[in-house]
Amino acid sequence: MIEVEHLSKTYGSTTAIQDITFGAQPGEILGFLGPNGAGKTTTMRILAGYLPASEGTARVAGYDVHTDSMAVRQRIGYLPESPPLYPDMTVQGFLNFVAKIKGVPADLRQKRADIAMDHCGLTDKRKVLIRKLSKGYRQRVGIAQAIIHDPPVIILDEPTVGLDPRQINEVRQLIKGLAGSHTIILSTHILPEVSMTCDRVTIINRGQVVATDTPDNLTTRLSGEAAYELEIKGDVDRAQRLLSELSPVRQVTLLGLEHLPDYHHRLRVSAEADRALGAVMSAALINAGLELHELRRQQATLEDVFLNLTTTEPATGATAPPEALAELPTVEPTPEEFET
């Protein structure tokens, strides 16, 4: 459905993306992952036909985005980096306008607008001026305009930016719900996001594809090491001893005591990746009569990953071999959190 081959884009002397190749099957959700400035937005814009590529081809639904621009435009819904909204229009008025220019027949427009607003949780804001909406709602209107004409291909550039956690969850559910009948490509710099929503992930850094795989495979590759942070009350030396005796644990360090109530201590545990470790640690501490106030698996964002990647291997420059990812700390989608 989406085929990108050897795509490059240069602005003057700067190279935004270089020789990118990837694809998406019909009905698939493809995550496009990379740190800020990796070339995600550029690639999205080329796919949407907004920017011409310097080299290479991009095809959407079998049509070349540059030479068959109109055919592609009819088949895509596109949410740019900043949602394209007219502040002086109401949500309904704006969606109606978008439906018109996207070529939705007049008798279907109202229905499609209702469906899009329903999907994006905008029904009770339909008469509100976009100018008066919060950032999260504007983002939702942006998503609504991308799906209003029920396009076979949906291109979403950072769809969850600016949303609160509950809205992020809703948007992810919405995207998942659209899969199957739609091919979706979404860009993000948050790894859990792709793990939760995408069927396949393409990671780019500095304009080049670093890896393409399923989220599960990537997670296993990335989760060589896990880090936890604990807050306990009681004999901290005993706690450290107990934790060190657990087999996957490599190191236990005592963190500073600032802002903690009396007899509370913070510990950082680094260990081999082991999904059951959280349960084992909490059981060990509680059986020993210590109070466990917090246990949290540290989440690394992709930016941390790339920061690591680029600082540890400056010599290799832009090309980071996929194997390097294996040395990085754990990145886990689901945080385990116990609070008493």
Binding site: A48, M70, P80, P84, L85, V98, K102
Partner: peptide, 14 residues
């Protein structure tokens, strides 16, 4: 300024 040109330029409108 509003970025809506990106919407118009990616819609099937000349």
């Amino acid at each position: 300024k509003q970025g809506t040109l990106e919407l118009l330029a990616t819609s099937p409108v000349t």
